[in-house]
Amino acid sequence: MFLSEPKTLFTPRGTFSYREGGQPDGAPVVMLHGWPESSYCWEYVGRHLKAGLRVIAPDLRGLGDSERTDGQRHYLKQALAQDVTSMLDKLDISEFQLLGHDWGGIVAQEIALAAPRRVQKMVIMNIAIINNLKGNKEVIEKVRSGSSEAYWYQHFQQIPGLAEAMIPDKEDVWIRTFVKGVETSIPEDAIAEYVRAYRIPGTPGTGANYYRTFSDDSKRWATLSAHRWTMPALYIYGKEDKVIIPEYLNHIEECFEDIRVEKVVAGHFLQEEKPEEVAGYLNEFLV
């Protein structure tokens, strides 16, 4: 094992879980998972990381082993960023390199937006860049011009009460519908971990809240077109993704002062499909 078993942190914002790996006194690297996963998604990438890094992998609110909180406002991505920051404060970590996949990539951007001096470098994987209004508009136009079948699960979860009514006792089917590879299968131990966590009471609703708050999140992001990320950045893209389509990469160079893009033959869950290749790019970029 690279990552530790889940540890618990009590912060002013709530009770959260996280895993650690690597060198305890090494350079902190904060890794944020997406939906429907947990901090365990970094286990296999971690096994290929270079020495000298200290990995801190939080479970975001409502997923993994972190608290299930009622109320959609807690799942606004700005609020989730504040959760992570409160955890890092509790761990006395002031500066760090930051990596996020899927919704974790959005939360990473919200952290970098709120506290840019704390983020030394930023890595984003298979998710939109929140200040890339031009590219994201092109995505919407592309999806509307064709089939939006791949996005059904987002609409499903946005319907009040539907996920809560239909997912319990079907967590294994639910998770396996999404967590699968293109060329390489995702490890069974990882899938079992996500199923276990999704069986924690309340998870269908708290997981759905990531999508139910998307409209309010988007209204904030629509004001960020003038923003530029100043820290060095890396985007690693699994180019077989059916949801985060290539148009998401359009114009991202205009959103950063220093951005590098690498593409991997993998689907959405590239860190588990191609962990050694993803870790290779991370080892080149992280310090």
Rank of each mutant, 00 (worst) to 15 (best):
170 K>L: 09
7 K>S: 06
87 M>H: 03
245 I>Q: 08
63 L>H: 11
70 D>W: 13
11 T>R: 10
264 V>S: 05
9 L>C: 06
223 T>W: 04
214 F>R: 14
56 I>S: 03
79 A>V: 09
181 G>P: 06
73 R>C: 08
158 Q>W: 05
99 L>S: 12
24 P>Y: 00
38 S>Y: 04
227 H>L: 08
104 G>S: 10
99 L>Y: 14
170 K>A: 11
137 K>P: 01
276 E>W: 06
136 N>C: 05
216 D>R: 14
191 I>A: 03
273 E>N: 05
278 V>D: 00
18 Y>C: 00
225 S>V: 08
236 I>F: 01
234 L>F: 00
209 N>G: 05
3 L>S: 02
277 E>L: 08
204 P>C: 03
117 R>M: 06
249 L>D: 02
119 V>S: 07
236 I>K: 08
222 A>S: 15
202 G>L: 08
93 I>K: 01
11 T>P: 10
93 I>G: 07
11 T>A: 06
94 S>M: 11
120 Q>P: 01
237 Y>A: 01
95 E>F: 09
61 R>G: 00
181 G>L: 06
8 T>I: 15
155 H>I: 10
11 T>N: 14
117 R>N: 12
77 K>V: 01
279 A>P: 07
133 L>C: 05
13 R>H: 08
121 K>S: 10
93 I>E: 07
214 F>Q: 07
31 M>R: 09
58 P>F: 00
125 M>K: 02
10 F>P: 01
22 G>L: 04
170 K>P: 00
239 K>D: 13
5 E>I: 04
176 R>Q: 13
207 G>T: 07
105 G>K: 03
202 G>D: 11
74 H>K: 03
32 L>G: 04
204 P>N: 05
149 E>I: 11
262 E>K: 15
254 E>G: 07
146 G>S: 13
72 Q>K: 10
112 A>K: 05
269 F>A: 05
246 P>W: 12
253 E>L: 01
5 E>T: 09
6 P>S: 00
115 A>C: 09
147 S>Y: 12
2 F>Y: 15
287 V>C: 11
170 K>C: 06
284 E>R: 14
198 Y>C: 06
80 L>M: 11
72 Q>R: 10
138 E>N: 13
278 V>W: 11
199 R>V: 00
172 D>G: 05
271 Q>G: 02
113 L>F: 10
240 E>V: 02
204 P>G: 02
140 I>H: 12
52 G>F: 10
269 F>L: 12
28 P>I: 06
133 L>V: 09
108 A>L: 02
213 T>D: 00
38 S>T: 13
89 D>L: 00
122 M>L: 13
221 W>R: 03
220 R>T: 03
154 Q>P: 01
252 I>H: 10
65 D>I: 00
159 I>W: 15
172 D>A: 15
100 G>P: 11
63 L>D: 01
91 L>G: 03
145 S>E: 15
1 M>R: 09
131 N>H: 08
68 R>A: 05
169 D>G: 03
83 D>P: 11
22 G>Q: 09
118 R>G: 04
130 I>A: 04
